[in-house]
Design a protein around this nucleic acid. Structure first.
Length: 370
RNA sequence: GGGUAGGUGGCAGAGCGGUCAAUUGCACCAGACUGUAAAUCUGGCCUCCUCGGAGUUCGGGGGUUCGAAUCCCUCCCUACCCA
């Protein structure tokens, strides 16, 4: 059984659809919690599922390094290994080329990492990235791409990254054999629309089952990304899923949905949750701040998540002050519930043809305008 | 009563003539976090103004010195040991 996508409703550029995978359906647009090392940090799969997640991420580089992709394959694949029965998308390690740039050497052949764990060299070629992901057995695999780092982003380096990304995508596609796994391509090009168009054109010609926009939220102003998204999304095939990688804050997700994006992932709800920041309909709040010390109210009133259903801001404040592990767990749970509820409401708004108005209301509440 | 070791910013604890408004940790206050080397990191934390400074600090009081948290005298207090 393969991965398929059906576009079901549109509201201007915004879309609602259904992504079908061997491990279950995914209603889009949606948010995918990040589980880099075969765990959404601090949460059990049951909690992730209860928060409303339909699909989660895993990571090629991290899992190949530890515990090893062959070990996971031998133990029945990533789904069984981590006890997540639903769909999984694995990132290719392309982002680690960017985030671990200090210890990576990139050539046309591939990227050579010095393991951040023990220094052991790891060569990640496009072919190896495919192999690892096939061993992991994810429902959706990503091609290895080169995400140009903002530090040396000149027109020439961005162009070089685009061209290499296209060549690597070709190699990934050729090497990919698993029929029960879809492989998505990644469009690079920074904020240069001509390069984006060129990259998209070449990748679309290769006929991948899904396309991602990479290289956003890597240091540019959020407004610049918001401005570029509609045109970038429009470069992608209408009837295939579109994935905006690594994004982002709630307002970024809504900008993405408005632009016609279907899939999002980001560490923000879980990482910020671990760091005592809660996303709410009234804007973000920092539970470590002294003002919450005696506040009996839940993190977000009206939120049905287990955190808000049973615990006060005062209690969360205490857990973080005492450095208790339940604090990060509860706030990660709430933040995921918030993100996933946001996407659920976005789907309903698109289907109801009232997405723009609904989005404006969300932004107004976050900014404290009402 | 005798002896010894001490009293430093909320706490612990450096410093032992100038480079000390005083290392560091904790606590406290605030901020950051966007395909996770992150349950992490950054900043602030005597008072007053704007950068830069100014003014008061290292148990109390007195003294030596150009200059003292650092040396001397004295008083008070604490811990331990001996009676």
């Amino acid at each position: 059984m393969a991965v398929s996508f059906r576009l079901q409703a549109t509201d201007q550029a915004a879309r609602a659809g259904l992504l079908t995978t061997p491990h279950g359906p995914v209603e889009t647009p949606t948010f995918m919690p990040v589980g880099t090392q075969a765990t959404v940090k601090g949460l059990t799969p049951e909690m992730v599922r209860a928060a409303g997640a339909q699909v989660i991420l895993g990571n090629t580089y991290h899992l190949a390094l530890r515990p090893g992709d062959e070990l996971i394959r031998d133990l029945g694949g990533l789904h069984r290994f981590m006890n997540w029965p639903g769909p999984i998308l694995t990132d290719s390690g392309g982002f680690q080329v960017f985030s671990l740039a200090a210890q990576v050497k990139v050539t046309d052949r591939g990227a050579t990492f010095r393991s951040h764990l023990d220094g052991t060299p790891l060569e990640l070629t496009p072919e190896r990235a495919v192999e690892i992901q096939q061993n992991l057995g994810s429902d959706i695999a990503m091609v290895l791409d080169e995400c140009p780092s903002l530090a040396d982003a000149t027109p020439a380096t961005v162009r070089a990254a685009v061209e290499r990304t296209v060549r690597w995508a070709e190699r990934c596609k050729r090497h990919h054999t698993r029929r029960d796994q879809a492989q998505f391509a990644i469009v690079q090009g920074g904020l240069d629309l001509d390069l984006r168009a060129e990259c998209a054109r070449d990748l679309v010609a290769m006929d991948f089952p899904g396309y991602a926009l990479g290289g956003f939220s890597v240091g540019e102003a959020p407004e610049a990304m918001h401005a570029a998204l509609p045109a970038c999304a429009a470069l992608l095939p209408e009837h295939k899923p579109r994935y905006l990688m690594g994004v982002g804050r709630p307002e970024d997700l809504l900008a993405g949905v408005a632009a016609g994006i279907d899939l999002f992932d980001c560490v923000m709800p879980t990482r910020n949750g671990r760091n005592a920041l809660a996303f709410t309909a009234g804007g973000p709040i920092r539970l470590r701040n002294a003002r919450h010390r005696r506040d009996p109210a839940p993190v977000e009133s009206g939120c049905p998540c287990p955190c808000c259903a049973g615990y006060s801001r005062a209690y969360l404040h205490h857990l973080f002050a005492a450095d208790e592990m339940l604090g990060p767990t509860l706030l990660s749970l709430h933040n995921l519930a918030f993100y996933l509820r946001l996407m659920r409401e976005a789907r309903a708004a698109v289907r109801g043809g009232r997405f723009a108005a609904w989005r404006a209301g969300c932004l107004a509440r976050w900014n404290g305008d009402e």
